[in-house]
Design a protein around this nucleic acid. Structure first.
Length: 1057
RNA sequence: GGGCGGUUAGCUCAGCGGUAGAGCACUACGUUGACAUCGUAGGGGUCACUGGUUCGAUCCCAGUACCGCCCACCA
């Protein structure tokens, strides 16, 4: 059956995918040779937020190339697929969907909402899997993993799936028990849209136009001081009596929470007032808060006024100063970023701070409960509050004033012609670009917020992750990323891992009311609740109780069932309580409020009935979930079945290589390194290959949640998966971003067609009539010997390139070989050979061609799996699918025939030269001419004789004749060691021919000048390596030879004229 | 403010001490029995700039300019 002219990708791709799937071709260990080394790649799990973009296509193409390459080479290969639950991103997708119908997350119960997220996960996961299959990704889907696998509710759960949930819980509990995870009230980045903490990495600092306001903080009681400003030489440039201290701020609304004003200890200007009190110039006039003027190293005397307001609860710098100076931190905003509206009226709350300043003892929680937002601002959005605060202060005359022509105001320059207005007094409000923190997902301004969060002591576990990369135990490519990685890890900060979301691994921690204090109360009261239960509300929650999630059945459910296996520490604590409370039943309730209520009821019942079995100890679970990256950080061991001692852990861990984008080096790579070492004490991978970003046409970054993503499916539909893959591979130069162009994809689609037609040509010439092609013996024809050697060379090139992760080099080598060598030359050479009527020549050429094309299919398969598998099946009875074919190991040293190589290159040169001359002289393509041999070296004559049929056909030569003199109508053709003439039908245009030859001579002359100049320099001959000198000499002599031939030709022309 | 990368043919990019490359685009010719998703031939580059090292620099070093990215607490 004759082959079609082109490959029908749309028809073949699904069929081939199904065939691979049916054969189990991608299963872990498929095609492994006995005792083979393992090769394992973990897919960077795509987020279940939607579909894959072209960056994923790139990433997975590279992984697939490596996977298929190793599988064909007989490694015990596993490409582990899966998806990431992507907490914040996925929750956002679902919430956005709900918003379309005017619904919100809070319209649902937590469980109801999660049900919706699971549906999103299911749909997205199907989508992702389908897309990866379309791309030809040879993942082992029978081992699919999910970062929340094992959590209840997963619609894609299957028997034997790795339980990520177990792994995550176990790691949390272990790290908690080792003191590496702790809970505390810290200043964190708060996202007012998600109403959740986020980590430093999830904050983008963007330069935003803003303002810097300057306000006067009046000194308490109308006190004054001499303000003296000096220049660098100590000369007084300003001296005045002031009753205020000038403060600059970009965030006036935070003034409400100021705890102090700080100046540098060396700042003489403010020395007279350090230790005094000043007044925050906002809020009800009668209840202005007084704050101390303190010293701290932080303020820069050169910047602004040199005095800084300290708002510990809303600024990271101020937080540090406040901690150092024992300055109270007052939280001003609620979870949505609005000014707080809770608590007592302002006057009452402000009074508490007065007491505090005068030495009253207050707990952290009590201070946090103070709401210092004046009543008029309460409930306002933070930006609205800013406007109002500025307006109020300015109206009161407490803004620092300046002249209206002050350049700091950033006013547009006045037209020159215009009459200058006399400068007036205006408030000093500098127009300024400010580095504003934004949430990378929500795109809203992040608010530093003092809240209770969970942290990982990253500093304590980071050591081995640093050491591994420093020592090369784990290699990071390209090298420059090593520095980026190390710099971040060496300066690592505590990692905030709690998120106030619903979608994610819920933190496996339960809280109870403080047992020690409760014990006192209960025993003092004779185990009778004499005081109302509300009293206990004020009790600090001291102990966090980590239940061992792994021994506890159904621990993640919300049922109020008794707990089976709780932590030993908890049991010890419980046992230490006075009887009979030490025998209380543990019951889970919704939250703290429910706990108090439950306990009160239980105590009442116990007291009334004197029945110890009525005694209940209520606990409630932390409502927060873990940062997604906490679980993704366990991807290496989690996918392989840890904490179970699985066969896969033994075979594939540590894994071989991770292929990922540079944008998640910190988020993911660094965390995986840290956590794998912390949990199993081993590196997660040998090599990390960091690829660049695929950008859109404009060079803009594509982002998952932004929407400017390209759908790789469209490209696959238009050009076929192979073309898309080959394009991406050939653009995968290390360390540089790539911009994708459709022209390029079309070009590689054409490459597939070229290959297809080469096979079609072979098929038409009986190459596949015999049995499956085998490796050739030494053929008689030079062309056959030559192409065998070229094949061996390209195989070495491809292996070397892939070994070095040079996907682009490998792709280019294959492209150049298949198109430039096999199709352009070898197939053309074979035509006269097939026409030769010599059965032996035909047989050897068929055999050679069959073998060479087979090698092309094998070598191209990792890059273009579909078309090659299709052609593999079309060209013979194959023992195995191409996906499992043996990768060749032949050496060029065994198969390259130097003589054949040299000879064919001479033949190719001659053909090209003749073609060039013919084209320039306008000889019709179809016209056969005799070739006149004026002189020719012995090698040349032999080469010609060996390949006469090839040359004559490709160069349209009728026959070759020796001659002593070229006739009038002949143009000259020169090649290495030979001069030929081509007689044209009529007398040639002497002028045109002279011009042509002189142009060539001119080029040669330039070359010769350079080469001989170099050789004439004694220092070159002396210092350059010998082979370089020899090479230069050879080159010079061959150029001179050619130049001489052309000069002779020019002389002959001159005689004619 | 620190760090990293880029600047090579019209476009997208390789090369990185010893004759400047590829793909696409462009020009001319061509339905030659694999392929017009093609063939043949051709045009096109002081390898950003300035110094230095070297027998020799697009390539190494230093600096400059412009572009891009990452990190960072100047109120």
């Amino acid at each position: 059956m004759p082959m079609e002219k082109t490959f029908n990708a749309a028809e073949a791709e699904p069929r081939l995918t199904a065939a691979w799937e049916a054969a189990g071709a991608f299963k872990a260990g498929a095609n492994a040779k006995p005792g083979a080394e393992s090769f394992c790649i973990l897919i960077p799990p795509p987020n279940v937020t939607g579909a894959l973009h072209i960056g994923h296509a790139f990433n997975n193409t590279l992984q697939d190339i490596l996977t298929r390459w190793h599988r064909m080479r007989g490694y015990d290969t596993l490409w582990q697929p899966g998806t990431d639950h992507a907490g914040i991103a996925t929750q956002m997708v679902v919430e956005r969907e709900l918003a379309k119908t005017n619904r919100r997350r809070t319209d649902f119960t937590r469980d109801e909402f999660l049900e919706l997220v699971w549906q999103q996960k299911h749909a997205s996961r199907n989508n992702i899997r389908h897309q990866l299959e379309r791309l030809g990704a040879s993942c082992d889907w029978s081992r699919e993993a999910f970062t929340m696998g094992g959590a209840p509710g997963d619609p894609d759960a299957y028997e034997g799936a790795p339980s990520f949930h177990d792994a995550v819980i176990k790691v949390f509990v272990d790290l908690y028990n080792k003191g590496l995870i702790y809970r505390g009230k810290r200043l964190v980045n708060w996202d007012p849209m998600f109403e959740s903490a986020i980590s430093d990495l999830e904050v983008e600092n963007i330069e935003t136009p803003g303002h810097m306001w300057h306000f006067k903080y009046p000194l308490a009681g109308g006190a004054t001081y001499e303000y003296v400003e000096k220049d660098v030489d100590g000369k007084v440039i300003l001296q005045e009596t002031r009753d205020y201290i000038s403060i600059a701020t970009t965030r006036p609304e935070t003034m409400l929470g100021d705890g102090a004003v700080a100046v540098h200890p060396s700042d003489e200007r403010y020395a007279p007032i350090v230790g005094k009190l000043c007044e925050i110039p906002v809020g009800p006039k009668d209840e202005r808060r007084l704050i101390p003027i303190i010293t701290d190293e932080y303020p820069d005397p050169e910047f602004g006024s040199g005095a800084v307001k300290i708002t510990g609860a809303h600024d990271f710098n101020d937080y540090q100063v406040a901690k150092r100076g024992g300055i109270p931190m007052y939280r001003l905003m609620d979870t949505k970023g609005a000014m707080r509206a809770d608590g007592a009226p302002y006057a009452e709350e402000a009074a508490k701070t007065q007491a505090l300043r005068e030495g009253a003892e207050m707990s952290e929680a009590e201070i946090d409960a103070i709401n210092l937002v004046p009543d008029v601002y309460r409930g306002l959005d933070r930006f609205e509050a800013r406007t109002r605060v500025v307006a109020d202060i300015t109206a009161e005359g407490l803004a620092v004033m300046t002249s209206s022509d002050d350049p700091r105001l950033g006013k547009p320059k006045k037209q020159k012609a215009e009459e200058e207005d006399a400068p007036t007094e205006v408030p000093l409000v500098e127009a300024k670009l400010i580095m504003q923190p934004y949430g990378d997902r929500s795109k809203v301004v992040i608010e530093p917020m003092l809240t209770d969060q969970w942290f990982v002591e990253a500093e304590q576990i980071v050591g081995p992750a640093i050491e591994a990369v420093r020592s090369g135990e784990t290699e990071i490519l390209p090298e420059q990323n090593k520095k980026v990685y190390l710099h971040w890890l060496e300066n690592i900060e505590p990692w905030c891992i709690s998120r106030q979301l619903w979608w994610g691994h819920r933190i496996p921690v339960w809280y109870g009311l403080n047992m020690a204090m409760m014990g006192d109360k209960l025993s003092a009261a004779g185990l009778t609740p004499e005081s109302p239960p509300e009293d206990w509300d004020g009790i600090d929650i001291g102990a966090e109780l980590a239940f061992d999630g792994l021994v506890q059945a159904g621990e993640h459910s919300h049922c109020a069932a008794e707990f089976g296996g709780v932590s030993e520490k908890f049991l010890d604590d419980l046992a230490a309580l006075p009887a009979p409370l030490n025998h209380a039943r543990i019951v889970e309730v919704e939250d703290k409020e429910a706990a108090i209520h439950t306990l009160a009821e239980a105590l009442a019942a116990y007291a009334a009935e004197d029945d110890p079995t009525k005694l209940i100890y209520p606990v409630w679970r932390d409502p927060d979930v873990l940062d997604t990256w906490f679980s993704s950080g366990l991807w290496p061991i989690g996918t392989l079945g840890w904490p179970e001692e699985t066969e896969e852990m033994k075979r594939y861990f540590p894994t071989s290589v991770l292929i990922t984008g540079f944008d998640i080096i910190f988020f993911w790579v660094a965390r995986m390194m840290m956590m794998q070492y912390a949990v199993v004490g081993q590196k997660p991978f040998d090599t990390v290959y960091v690829h660049a970003l695929v950008r859109d046409e404009k060079g803009k970054k594509m982002s998952k949640s932004l929407g400017n993503v390209l759908d790789p499916l469209d490209l696959i539909n238009d050009y076929g998966a192979d073309a898309v893959r080959f394009t991406l591979a050939s653009m995968a130069a290390m360390g540089r971003d790539l911009k994708l162009s459709k022209d390029r994809i079309a070009g590689y689609r054409n490459f597939g067609t070229k290959l297809w037609n080469a096979i079609r040509f072979a098929e038409m010439n009986g190459v596949y009539e015999a049995a499956t092609p085998t490796a050739p013996t030494t053929p008689s024809q030079t062309a056959n010997r030559w192409i065998i050697g070229e094949t061996a060379s390209v195989r070495e090139e491809v292996d070397a390139a892939l070994d070095a992760y040079r996907f682009d080099d490998a792709a280019k080598a294959l492209y150049g070989f298949v198109w430039g060598k096999v199709c352009d030359w070898y197939l053309e050479f074979s035509k006269p050979l097939f026409d030769s009527k010599d059965a032996e020549i035909i047989a050897e050429t068929r055999q050679t061609m069959g073998w060479v094309l087979d090698q092309c299919l094998v070598l191209l398969h990792p890059f273009m799996p579909f078309i090659t598998e299709e052609l593999w099946a079309a060209t013979g009875d194959r023992a195995k699918l191409l996906v499992h074919a043996d990768w060749p190991m032949f050496q060029s040293s065994q198969l390259v025939d130097d003589n054949a190589d040299h000879e064919m290159n001479w033949v190719i040169g001659l053909i090209e030269e003749i073609r060039s001359v013919r084209a320039q002289m306008g000889v019709p393509v179809g016209t056969y001419l005799p070739l006149l041999q004026l002189d020719c070296s012995a090698d040349g004559q032999a080469a010609y004789a060996n390949s006469a049929a090839l040359i004559n056909r490709l160069a349209r030569i009728e026959k070759i004749e020796e001659t002593d003199a070229l006739p009038k109508g002949a143009v000259t053709v020169t090649v290495e060691g030979a001069t030929f003439g081509l007689p044209l039908a009529d007398a040639i245009d002497v002028a045109a021919e002279t011009a042509r030859l002189e142009k060539t001579l001119g080029k040669l002359g330039k070359d010769i000048g350079g080469l001989s100049g170099r050789l004439n320099n004694p220092k070159f001959v002396q210092s350059a390596p010998e082979d370089v000198v020899d090479e230069t000499r050879d080159l010079l002599s061959s150029k001179e030879d050619e130049a001489n031939r052309i000069k002779s030709a020019l002389a002959r022309l001159a005689e004619m004229a």
